[in-house]
Write a protein that binds this DNA or RNA. Structure first.
Length: 634
DNA sequence: ACATTATAAATA
DNA sequence: ATTTATAATGTG
């Protein structure tokens, strides 16, 4: 098309764009003229004049037409390849709708850092490994066939505890011809899975948030040219790769797949949605999948890939449930198991629920705990220096001299934290080398301590990350009840996942692996499932509880909070809106935070219906307070 | 009369 | 979100 044509019939190439201005007032498309010679396609990132300034914008469609008014031209193309190639515009629009944000905010997820990039045509993608581990699973062959035939679908791959996920995922990526995106949990140190994929595919595009922005931009552009595969944190699922055959989410149950900042998307849903829109295969990998995923397998919405029962049982360590003894952090049995393991030259890991010296400070008189003035969470007690601290908000202060409730001046130190426990263990086993790994130690350490030097490794949940944990023969969980009894409807699920991870850490009984769990509730289904090495047992029992209270997967959740002058009034408006959209509303309740913060939780059959109603509320009525909408909260 | 500051409206 | 026009308020 030449400019002479547009002069004769008045038609021109037009682009509809979404300006990257995250405000409800401009949550729509704007049209511009595409100057001849500019390679503007759907998904291109461009610069346009908008309201007296220049902003970046994502092109959502391109076509010829007669402008019905004077249009501005697109002023430049700012990235060499489309940042939202089909079907990403639809996926991003889905995120905007489901998570109730202006489209511009969803689109900003795919905008690379501001650096100039130049990329070369990608080399041919080398072949990966043939399926060997995968075909040992029931359903593994079906997945390989589906990938080979290009049949779309979604699967849950329930990995064997102790499985090499790097190898397993490499086989999936390989079966997809390398045209795959892999998301791993967001981790600070490194990812073993990404490392092993990079060994097989040296061109692997790393879209980690840990890599420098220039490198990240280059990876973004290379994926746009068809280089494959790509891997990284949850953001990797939004990479501008073209012709994606497979989307893999590793450790599907990991909490980091829920974004905590706006747009608060759930990467599992996004993975499924992108795969559906791209007619690709989605694979959710975990040895203890979320209940939502497990339920989807039971009712056939997800294909099942699971290990053979005998292999599953074979991966399990010896598991002992031990009744806690009042006043002792370590029961006699656990003490004896530690001694025996050390004598045999084995290493021990002990898991404590909290850091610091004592986990709480209680008034000896009124038996109330000292709580954080900022966020109401319980405070833990530090000895060096002497102070109380809040694990949630980082509040740290000298402990009060008298009880803030009743004025008594005597306190009880309740529960051993990682620091006291490490001391206690060191004095019980004077010849063992005890190492403590908790958030305080990790913060101070410049680099990772040499973990292999220790005999007893005392840690909070932070030290259980796969990249941190040393080989051990015995894992002791000091207080499983703390996990099981948390006031959260997902407490059992989390406990099961955490303890399953500990069982994995201990290793199979055939290699001498042993797991000792101190608990007053040995019959809890999370623990029973572990003892039987039967995830499905846990799944079915926990589903009964969820059904009874109609929690996910029997409903979808939307959490709304309001903060500001008229928070109380606005949260009532939000509650009415949710009810009007078919939701059942819990609350409003006041929550910790700035003065006068209120929250509701809506359960409904379809969060998108509730979300749509809330979208109208925040877009239409002018609200005094700020509403924070969290769809699919975790 | 003119500078300064709050407020509303518009963005192609 | 940011700019721009417009109104409201302040100052010499």
């Amino acid at each position: 098309m030449t400019s002479a044509d547009s002069a004769t019939d008045g038609s021109a190439t037009l682009a509809s764009v979404v300006p990257i201005v995250p405000a409800w007032r401009v949550d729509r498309e704007f049209d511009y003229i595409v100057p001849p010679g500019l390679d503007v396609r759907p998904g291109s990132l461009v610069r346009v004049g908008f309201g007296g300034r220049r902003v970046r914008a994502v092109v959502v469609s391109v076509g010829r037409g007669r402008p019905d008014r004077d249009l501005e031209p697109v002023s430049a193309l700012v990235f060499p390849t489309p940042v939202a190639p089909p079907p990403m515009i639809d996926v991003l629009s889905y995120i905007a709708h489901r998570y109730v944000v202006p489209r511009a905010r969803a689109f900003s997820l795919v905008i690379p850092p501001r650096v100039r990039v130049r990329v070369d045509e990608p080399a041919r993608v080398p072949d990966g490994p043939a399926p060997k581990l995968l075909t040992r699973y029931r359903g593994g062959r079906a997945l390989v066939d589906a990938l080979a035939d290009g049949r779309p679908g979604a699967w849950c791959l329930r990995a064997l505890p102790g499985e090499d996920h790097g190898r397993l995922i490499a086989e999936v990526v390989s079966a997809a011809g390398g045209r795959a995106l892999v998301a791993v949990p967001e981790v600070r140190y490194c990812s073993l899975v990404i490392d092993s994929l990079a060994r097989i595919w040296p061109d692997l595009a790393r879209v980690d948030s840990s890599v420098p922005s220039s490198e990240r931009s280059v990876a973004w552009a290379r994926l746009g040219l068809g280089s494959a595969p790509g891997a990284g944190g949850r953001a990797a699922l939004l990479a501008p790769a073209v012709d994606v055959n497979a989307i893999v989410v590793d450790e599907e149950h990991h909490p980091s797949f829920k974004e905590v900042r706006s747009p608060r998307y759930d990467a599992r849903r996004v993975a499924l949605e992108r795969a559906r829109a791209a007619s690709a295969v989605c694979v959710l990998v975990s040895s203890s999948p979320t209940l939502e995923t497990g339920a989807a397998v039971l009712d056939g919405r997800l294909g099942s890939i699971e290990p053979d029962r005998s292999e599953e049982r074979g991966a399990r360590p010896i598991i002992e449930m031990v009744e806690p003894q009042a006043g002792r952090a370590l029961t006699h049995i656990l003490h004896e198991r530690i001694a025996r393991t050390l004598r045999a030259g084995g290493r021990v890991a002990l898991l404590v629920p909290g850091r610091g010296y004592a986990r709480a400070l209680w008034c000896a008189e009124c038996r109330r705990s000292v709580r954080c003035p900022r966020c109401e969470a319980g405070l833990f007690f530090d000895r060096r220096p002497i102070r109380v601290r809040c694990a949630r908000c980082g509040y740290a202060e000298r402990p009060p001299d008298v009880c803030p409730h009743c004025g008594a001046n005597e306190f009880r130190y309740v529960g051993a934290g990682s620091e006291r426990l490490a001391e206690q263990v060191a004095s019980s086993f004077p010849r063992a080398h005890v190492m403590r790994v908790d958030p305080d130690v990790l913060e101070k350490a410049e680099e990772l301590p040499d973990l292999s030097a220790s005999d007893i490794y005392v840690t909070t949940w932070i030290g259980t990350k796969a990249a941190l944990r040393p080989d051990v023969a015995l894992v002791g969980v000091l207080d499983a009840d703390w996990l099981i009894r948390r006031p959260d409807f997902r407490a059992a699920e989390r406990a099961h996942q955490a303890l399953a991870e500990m069982a994995e850490w201990a290793g199979p009984a055939s290699d001498g692996g042993r797991l000792v769990i101190q608990t007053a509730e040995p019959n809890h289904h999370a623990l029973q499932a572990l003892a039987r090495a039967d995830y499905t047992f846990f799944l079915k029992r926990e589903l009964e509880h969820r059904r009874e209270l109609s929690y996910p997967p029997f409903s979808e959740l939307v959490k709304v909070s309001a903060v500001g002058t008229s928070a109380r009034e606005d949260i009532r408006k939000a509650a009415r809106t949710c009810r009007g959209a078919g939701g059942t509303v819990l609350g409003p309740i006041p929550i910790p935070g700035p003065e006068g913060t209120w929250q509701i939780l809506a359960k409904s059959p379809d969060a998108m219906v509730v979300g749509e109603a809330l979208r109208d509320l925040v877009r239409g009525a002018r609200l005094e307070s700020r509403l924070r909408i969290d769809v699919d909260p975790r």
